[in-house]
Amino acid sequence: MFGKRLIEYVIAFMALIILNFVMPRLMPGDPIDAIYGNELVALTPELREQLRAQYLLDQSIWSQFLHYLYSIASGDLGYSYAGKAPVIDIVAGALPWTILLVGTALFGAITIALFLGIESGWRRGERLDRYLFAIFSIINGIPGFFIGMILIIIFALNLKVLPAGGAITHYAGYTGSEYAIDVARHLILPATALCVSELSWIYLLMRGGIISVINEPFIKTGMLKGLDDRTIRYRYAARNALLPVFTRIGIQISQIVAGILIIEAVFTYPGIGYLLHDALLTRDLPLIQGILLIVTISVLAINFTMDILYPRIDPRIRHV
C-alpha cells in the first residue's frame, strides 16, 4: 500500500521534472532570445555561440537532460539575470516567508473553521448556525485578493495601525523581540486575508460533514451509551465528518497555493508568490522555472503526506 503510493509519487515527480525540462524547449524561437531577449540589445554571432555552449545547447538532448538532472540534484536551478543571483538562493530567501504566511493562515483557518463548522452543524437551524452559515456563505463568494484589499484600505490606509505591505520594516535595524513583533505586524493582514478566504469553505465543508453524519446510527449509539454531549459531538460526529473535509483540503492544496501567490502580490509580501509575480513581469525565465518546480514539488510533497496520514484518520481506508 505504502510502497505503491510511493511509486506513484515518484512517477509523478519524474513527469514533473521532464515537463519542466521539455516545456521551455518547446517554446518557439531561439532559447537565447527567450532568455536574453530584453537584456541584450544586440547579440553578436560569437557571443551567441558562446552562450549556446555555456547553456549546453550545442549538445544532444539526452546529454542536456542528464546535465539538467545533475544540476537539480546538486541544487542548481540556474541563474537569474534579473536578480543577479542563483535561482536557488533567491527562492530559498523567499520560501521561509511563504511558509510563515501559509503556516499561520492555514493553521488559523483550519482550527477556526473546524471548530465553528462542528458547533454550527451540530446546532443546525439554531440562531448561531444560521448567522455563521450566512456570513461564511457570503465570504465564500469573495475572492481572497479582494478581502486583502479591503483589509489594506481599512487597517493600513484609514486606521494606519498596520503596515500595508512587505514582511519587515527595512533599515529599522530591529533585533530580538522587536524584530519578532515587526514580523508579526507585517504578517497580520496577509495572514488574515488568506485565513478568512480559506476559512469559509473549510467551515462550510465541516458543517456539511457534521450534518451528514448527525443522523448516522452510531450517533444514536453514542447517545444511548449515556455519553456527554461534547464527547458525542467530537468523538462521534466530528471524528467521522472530518474524513471528507480532510480529503478536500488535500485536493484543494494547489488552489490554496494559487491563492497565496495572489495574496502575496497584493501585500507585496516577499514570498514565493511575490517573487513569481516579479519574475513574470521581468520575464526572468530561469527564475519562473525554478519557482514552478519548487511549488509543484511542494504540492506533491503535501499530497504525499496527506496520503500517508489518511489511513491514520480513517481506519476504513486501510481495507479499500
Binding site: F218, T221, R235, P315
Partner: peptide, 8 residues
C-alpha cells in the same frame, strides 16, 4: 454504521 467507524 451502528458502531463508530473511527474507533476500535
Amino acid at each position: 454504521n451502528v458502531l463508530n467507524p473511527a474507533y476500535t
